[in-house]
Design a protein around this nucleic acid. Structure first.
Length: 411
DNA sequence: TCTGGGGTCCTAGGACCC
DNA sequence: TCTGGGGTCCTAGGACCC
């Protein structure tokens, strides 16, 4: 048995993933600046091809600004079904080398290949094999980091981009990290970097010299502990293939701010439907419901309530969120974003067995609607209150009665 | 340059219990 | 009558990640 390699962790990260999937679909886009994102007035860039990045465009940049930087860019609306399919194909490739694959997002994953070297060779060779297969079988490009732990592997893949592989041997970790900006450390974002900058802490070497007590005062105990380890290249996190989600949410930024409480209430029902369907699809139920609002000022608030019994029906989620909304007593306040989230998730099978979920008619009704949508498509069942056309109560009163459910003709 | 949507984790205060 | 400390849960907000 070969011993476990010193650098068993791989981070595989697709290059410009959404944009690359769009180029693959439409080869006429090849070589052009491509932006994937919301084309509406309030959209941001979700993914930019490297041709677009040459103009200074980065992801999360407002689309309007990106187009000022590069007016010739092609803007494509996101197609998450296509990205999810490509992600599944990626997963197939990765799991053929080890079952220890931990997806971080649709386009990136950690692998622990410590047990795979006898079959496939050393980790850097596995990284090269993976890159080759992604190019050959998916017609996409990935960069790979190979390192002793997750943090370093991810750092290496980012330094290898685009279309590269970087292997960091354990004995070169300290020298590799020392000159890097603190912003390269996992968990150091804009705010933390600015705070450290005020103490002239700019590089990892600078950070190593900060006394422990000072660091705790600057960033809090948890972050201080993590940063101290990361600055030395230490990261105790293991590769975990699957973990149950801890929360779910749906939110919407309106094209124009909304100040009509009735409209907000109706939108809340739409969001509750989305969240409840996902809960049931994953056999989960939630105890805590969180309402989120962002005002025109961009100030963002949340209000939450924890239920005695877990719920997985839109009717319950909506009732709770609407009560939280009512309690805000908004009077002609302009709302930019509305969101509904759930946390405190429990497996609904176990909960139902313990009668922790009331098996009421709403739950039965919504699960029946799930079945109908499964057989006849998403449009098969829609709430009366959410119909745009003839539907009666486009009112907001989600206290809908069962008769308000109606099949439409699309099924 | 007016800033998406989906997540995770941490902090801090108060309630409550032992 | 006044005073403890620890643990857990809830709520609100914020930083950070892709």
């Amino acid at each position: 048995m070969p011993q476990r390699p010193a650098e068993p962790i791989l981070h595989v990260d697709m290059d410009a993933f959404y944009a690359a999937v769009e180029v693959r679909r439409d080869p006429a886009l090849a070589g052009r600046p491509v932006l994937v994102g919301g084309a509406g007035g309030r959209g941001v860039v979700a993914s930019a091809s490297y041709e677009a990045r040459a103009y200074g465009i980065t992801s999360a940049m407002p689309m309007a600004r990106a187009l000022r930087l590069c007016p010739a860019a092609v803007v494509v609306s996101p197609d998450f079904a296509a990205y999810t399919a490509a992600s599944a194909a990626l997963r197939e490739v990765l799991t053929s080398y080890t079952p220890l694959v931990e997806p971080l997002a649709l386009d990136e994953a950690f692998l622990d290949v410590g047990g795979s070297v006898r079959l496939f060779g050393p980790p850097e060779r596995i990284g090269a094999l993976i890159r080759g297969r992604i190019r050959a079988e998916l017609d996409l490009v990935a960069s790979v980091g190979v390192a002793p732990n997750k943090f370093l592997a991810k750092l290496c893949s980012s330094k290898a981009k685009p279309d590269g592989l970087l292997h960091l041997p354990a004995d070169r970790v300290a020298d590799f990290l020392a000159p890097l900006p603190v912003r390269d450390l996992w968990g150091v974002g804009e705010q933390t970097a600015a705070r450290l900058e005020r103490f002239a802490v700019r590089t990892v070497a600078d950070l190593r010299a900060v006394p422990a007590g000072t660091l705790v005062r600057l960033v809090g105990p948890a972050a201080a502990g993590a940063l101290t380890g990361l600055a030395r290249g230490e990261d105790p996190r293991t590769v975990v293939p699957w973990e149950a989600p801890k929360g779910m949410s749906a939110e919407e930024t309106f094209d124009r701010d909304v100040d009509d409480p009735a409209v907000l209430r109706t939108e809340l029902l739409r969001l509750a439907e989305r969240v409840a369907r996902r809960l049931r699809a994953t056999d989960a139920a939630a105890r805590t419901v969180t309402l989120k609002l962002r005002y025109s000022s961009f100030q963002t608030i949340t209000r939450s309530r924890t239920l005695a019994l877990p719920a997985d029906e839109a009717t319950t989620l909506h009732a709770e969120a609407a009560a939280l909304l009512d309690a805000l007593r908004l009077e002609r306040v302009r709302v930019r974003l509305l969101g509904l989230g759930v946390t405190n998730l429990v497996p609904s099978g176990a909960a139902r067995q313990l009668s922790l979920i009331a098996d009421d008619r709403w739950g039965r009704l919504e699960r029946a609607a799930d079945l109908a949508r499964g057989r006849f498509g998403d449009g098969a069942v829609t709430r009366g209150a959410l119909l745009d056309d003839d539907g009666p109560p486009r009112t907001a009163d989600g206290g809908a009665v069962p008769e308000q459910w109606r099949g439409n003709t699309k099924g």
